[in-house]
Amino acid sequence: MIAFILRRLLQSVIVMIAVAAVSFTLFRFVGDPINSMVGQEASIADRQALRDSLGLNDPIILQFGRFLGNALQGEFGISYRLQMPVTELILQRLPATIELALVSGLLAFVVGLALGVYTALRRRGVLSNVIMTASLIGVSLPTFLIGVLLIWVFAVELRWLPSNGRGEVVALGDWWSTGFLTHSGRLALILPAVTLGLYQMTLIMRLVRAEMLEVLRTDYIKFARARGLSARAVNFGHALKNTLVPVITITGLQLGSIIAFSIITETVFNWPGVGALFINSVRFVDVPVMAAYLMMIALIFVVINLIVDLLYYAVDPRLRVDRAGKAH
């Protein structure tokens, strides 16, 4: 058990160091950091002095070490474009992204689970077929197109919901601003959350349906029916319970995807989150922001994957014999 955890931890650290190396390369070799810090009129001697004081003449490995040290303290320098500390920029925008990701993740899970159970239990029903077909089209629709179409219908034609921004936000403490507490904030959340959650919802729905159908075919379900248990007890008490383990792990893994796909949704809806910040940094080659975002998203993915792997290991004893990498 300990050996397994250590190996997984080591793998995660290696991935993070590799990502940090990419980030550092980007940081150090894209453009001249000095040029983006001082103006045209700085003399060569000034530049050299700055170069020395920043340690840009030190051996690369030393610089990389310093970069890692700074990154561990959450220090990524100053955005070229916005002239603000990157960490501050990201922290400022993180609440918007996290609130959006949480709401759409929850939406995807609850609705996906309900639809999955329904389509599994009423396999041949008309409504089930309609839902399954719709989900196929849903998977083929790119996220940004869903967002644009939703804006068209609900914001432009019907005028029910706002098409961009977060609405009114309330500050909670120094670092958090929430849109949950105001009416306009909640309204503004609906369209982006649906857009972001739709793909994950179809995924969860199909997974739940497949798992349910699998479990409903097993002997212990037949036996439960033979014992005369009510359909409700069999379907929900026995079948659903046993499908939940893989569903929860997949949902956990999808949380990372939701944060990644929020880049698209935030751009469509002008949502003031981290994803929109990142897209602008790519567009304007704002390297410090790109490097910081890269590290942040890698960390999120590595942590989620690690947790899911460990959970799997705890839940499913069969994996303890096998190699761990196959867990998903």
């Binding site: 894209v30 453009g31 796909f261 880049i263 940094s281 390297v287 790109m290 993915f301 990498g325």
Partner: peptide, 23 residues
């Protein structure tokens, strides 16, 4: 492959595009 498959393809494409543009 394991590492790459853990990230959504669109994110990887975006990152590579951003990095390449920087160079």
């Amino acid at each position: 492959a394991d590492v790459q498959l853990a990230f959504p393809a669109i994110l990887i494409a975006l990152l590579i595009f951003g990095i390449a543009r920087g160079f």
